[in-house]
Simulated assay, not measured.
Amino acid sequence: MPITMSLREAVLHKVHGKSKSGMRDMIEGSIDAQEAALPGLGVVFEVIWKNIDNAKQDELLSVLQGELEQTNLTPLK
């Protein structure tokens, strides 16, 4: 009988028990890769977000906002 997992469960299963080096390799290998890797990064970000305090969340938001402000995007029509 096949085991059915949600995407979130599959990503968490894949990264469970990885060393810091293994986690870094997974994250860096997903950045700028095919878009199929983006949901996995989203799950990893969710774990981080849920487990840091408000001050660190605000710091992450500041970094994100600052980087997005420097990005030249064409407005959607």
Rank of each mutant, 00 (worst) to 15 (best):
F45M: 15
V15W: 02
E35S: 05
A10P: 03
L73M: 07
P2Y: 05
M23K: 12
K50A: 12
V63I: 14
V47H: 05
A36E: 11
T4G: 08
E35R: 13
T4L: 14
S19C: 10
E59A: 15
Q34F: 05
G29Q: 00
L64R: 08
W49G: 00
E28W: 07
G17F: 04
G42R: 04
A36P: 00
P39V: 00
M5L: 15
P2K: 11
L7A: 04
P75C: 03
A36K: 09
G29M: 04
K18I: 02
V44S: 03
E69L: 07
D58F: 06
S62L: 10
Q70F: 10
E46I: 02
E59R: 10
V63L: 11
R24Y: 11
D25L: 11
L68Y: 10
K18F: 12
W49H: 14
N72G: 07
G40D: 02
E59C: 02
K50Y: 01
M23T: 08
V44I: 15
M26F: 13
L60Q: 01
D32V: 00
Q70T: 10
S21I: 06
F45T: 11
T71N: 01
V15P: 00
Q34H: 13
I31G: 08
S62A: 14
W49M: 06
E28Y: 13
I52R: 09
K50T: 06
L73F: 09
S21C: 00
V43W: 04
N51P: 02
H16D: 13
K56M: 12
G42N: 09
K50R: 15
A36G: 03
